[in-house]
């Protein structure tokens, strides 16, 4: 871990300004992903701005009937919030399927959205990785790619975004609210939040340098059955091979987003239109254009079968 200076931020705007002003500055909240990566010098901030004191951990109702989740709301608290459990069960389920009790107690809402890939080549600084070291190549292509993306990949990167929570946020049409260095705030629909790897896999989101997430807002509840089905080798404490987050209405219509298949939670409007027709039709649309490797081709039938299980659970 490279040496760094450390400050406790006093206000969100000051934090954002400091992050833009100080070279190599990074925010730290839960730290569960950042410190992991700093120990391996995959992340090498010169300055840490500790945002934990910013009182951004409240979860409150919005005027529109939705919920505004503070960036610092811990995963445990968000999953256990009675309003989330009652009205956004998908989010609660996705959170509880992720990580461990210890990690959920520390990990924050914003940090979870921003967690980086678990590609083993990204994690090994001896190996080429365009995400870690732009231009060095991608060792996962042609290498161990069982966990990797089958959609939205580029010739430079086939990493997945590992967050379970983000899958729920995608299905729930969440909005990410931020403040920038100049104090301006903006709202980014989650669908626009993640960037495809293309030629710059190192840039994962649309956030500008120093831009700080303040909250994630959910629109008013849409009802329906909320199901998050995570598939993994180990029964717990493991990242998804694939996951399906779905909201299914009584008439069979609904929403579905996939985890573990791309650089972002994968959701396609055209696929959702097929939901009353069943899993095969939905999967065909969701997986259109998929480019699996030999090692992760199983994800295609697995997605369809998991979707089928989810739709069947929804009917039950």
């Amino acid at each position: 871990m490279k040496p760094f200076t450390y400050e406790r931020a006093q206000s969100p705007a000051e934090a954002a300004a400091a992050a833009a002003r100080i070279a190599g500055a990074k925010f730290i909240a839960g730290g569960t992903n950042l410190l992991d990566l700093m120990k391996l010098e995959i992340e090498t901030p010169a300055h840490l701005i500790d945002v934990n004191g910013l009182k951004l951990d409240t979860i409150e109702a919005t005027a529109e009937g939705g919920l505004r989740i503070g960036a610092l709301a811990r995963n445990t608290d968000l999953a256990a919030d009675p309003r989330v459990r009652r009205n956004y069960g998908l989010l609660s389920r996705a959170l509880l399927a992720g990580a461990s009790g210890q990690l959920r107690n520390k990990a924050t809402t914003a940090g979870n959205l921003l967690q980086r890939t678990r590609c083993p080549y990204f994690y090994d600084t001896n190996q080429p990785c365009n995400k870690r070291q732009p231009g060095s190549g991608c060792a996962a292509i042609g290498g161990f790619s069982r966990q990797h993306a089958v959609l939205g990949v580029s010739e430079n990167c086939i990493a997945t975004q590992p967050s379970d929570m983000a899958v729920a946020m995608m299905a729930l049409d969440a909005t990410v609210e931020t403040v920038r260095a100049d104090g301006a705030t903006r709202k980014i629909p989650i669908a626009d939040f993640y960037r495809a790897p293309a030629d710059t896999p190192e840039t994962e989101t649309v956030l500008a340098p120093g831009e700080l997430i303040l909250a994630v807002t959910l629109p008013k509840p849409v009802g329906g059955k909320h199901i998050y089905h995570k598939v993994r080798d180990r029964a717990s404490y493991a990242f998804a091979l694939v996951s399906v987050g779905a909201i299914v209405q009584r008439d069979g219509s609904g929403r579905a987003a996939l985890g573990g298949v791309a650089h972002k939670p994968w959701r396609i409007a055209a696929a959702e239109a097929e939901m009353p027709r069943g899993a095969k039709a939905v999967a065909e649309r969701l997986l259109a254009g998929a480019t699996p490797t030999h090692e992760n081709a199983f994800k295609l039938p697995l997605v369809e079968r998991t979707l089928a299980a989810v739709l069947s659970d929804a009917r039950a």
């Binding site: 450390y6 569960t32 990690l103």
Partner: peptide, 13 residues
């Protein structure tokens, strides 16, 4: 009162 992984947090925090 809450359990955490003490390896993934800085003492100064």
């Amino acid at each position: 009162g809450r359990r955490i992984n003490s390896c993934l947090t800085l003492a100064v925090m």
